[in-house]
Design a protein around this nucleic acid. Structure first.
Lengths: 198, 198
DNA sequence: CGGGAATAGTTGACACATCATCCAGGTTGC
DNA sequence: GCAACCTGGATGATGTGTCAACTATTCCCG
């Protein structure tokens, strides 16, 4: 928005050749890597990547129980996605819901024994796969570069005008989020893995 | 496989702290970036990222028609995914199927006028978004690093034992793919964009 | 206290991806 | 020339993600 040069909105900025090569390489890599990780996870365990992500959040917590909205926020999923997914996981016995005493609306998602053994079974080979597909191929410098690039892009996504779009995902209806510059990135608690080191 | 030290398969290689930070940053960035790009595409045009990918392949071709399996290969999609997706796109008038004279089994996917105008309408703002979310934030060095890292990982995915898993996706049933070292990465034709520069 | 607004979560409809299966049209070998 | 096989593609069932309502509770403010 707020363009100094009004035509700027109408002149298309195509990608430079070097950018285009980088972009195509990234897009392709990322889609294949995702596919591979999902496939490996499904093949070598009874859970999917999505299940894994949920279970990691649960094992990250001492009490092994997390509020639904807390899950949604830390995974950056829509709350309805969580709800559906937890429903399916519950059917398979990986988690269980418990009502929240202090807040009648809320509910907890609780790790079951089956859930714990499922993630403990899945995590090692997943970690090994990440090593084989990523870190075995990259130098320390490249690992650092990957992190810096990822952080820059991610920060851009959660700042300024982009943040408004992200915020929509947790609201029930389109709350007019004023793009206030004083975004609060510190709200993202940095939780460290306890049991499962991924 | 072929481990020098037999225990290596059973000792879990967890991620080093530095690797873990990089990995979490990457995973998060990539998922948010995908979400953002899809969201922007749906919001500012009548097509999705998947539609866009298909249409790009069609506009990349002089005759604006591509065989279904060719589409599947260049997008790295399953053939049934293409089939379903083309069916939906056909319903919306973005593409049309045509039978292939030379091979009675085959069929072409053909770009319609509606499809062409849809992608022409979507591409500029998509390119602008990619600029804003990615390239405006990265230095030339970082862009180059992103490409090199992506290429390394992607190459790893299409080589050796991983290639077998990929190959499965195009076969009707699990053809026993011998992990021959003489993989043929040159089979991936490098098609350049003509009309749509993404 | 009472009523509107915000919050936590669920639900249903739909779009999409995957898998297994099927089928029609080619290809090969004899 | 025909039987076995292979290939290109379609189809249906199922699991998953998104969006738009909807319900139930809590918060806030008079």
């Amino acid at each position: 928005m707020c363009q100094l040069f009004p035509y700027a909105e109408f002149v298309t900025r195509w990608l430079e050749p070097e950018q285009q090569r980088a972009w195509r390489a990234y897009v392709r890599m990322q889609s294949e890597l995702n596919a591979h990780l999902s496939r490996q996870m499904s093949a070598e365990s009874e859970i999917s990547m999505a299940d894994f992500a949920v279970l990691v959040q649960l094992t990250d917590t001492p009490e092994e129980r997390v509020r639904v909205l807390e899950l949604a926020r830390s995974l950056n999923w829509e709350k309805s996605r969580i709800s559906h997914h937890v429903g399916r996981m519950e059917k398979r016995g990986l988690v269980r819901r418990e009502s929240c005493g202090s807040d009648g609306r809320g509910s907890f998602v609780v790790l079951t024994d089956r859930g714990r053994s499922a993630i403990e079974a899945a995590a090692p080979s997943h970690a090994e796969t990440v090593h084989k597909l990523v870190f075995d191929l990259l130098s320390d410098t490249e690992v650092q570069a990957l992190r810096e690039i990822s952080e820059k892009i991610f920060t851009g996504l959660t700042t300024g005008e982009c943040a408004a779009v992200v915020a929509r995902r947790y609201a029930d209806d389109a709350v007019e989020v004023v793009p206030e510059e004083s975004g609060c990135p510190e709200a993202r608690a940095n939780r460290d893995g306890v049991d499962v080191e991924i």
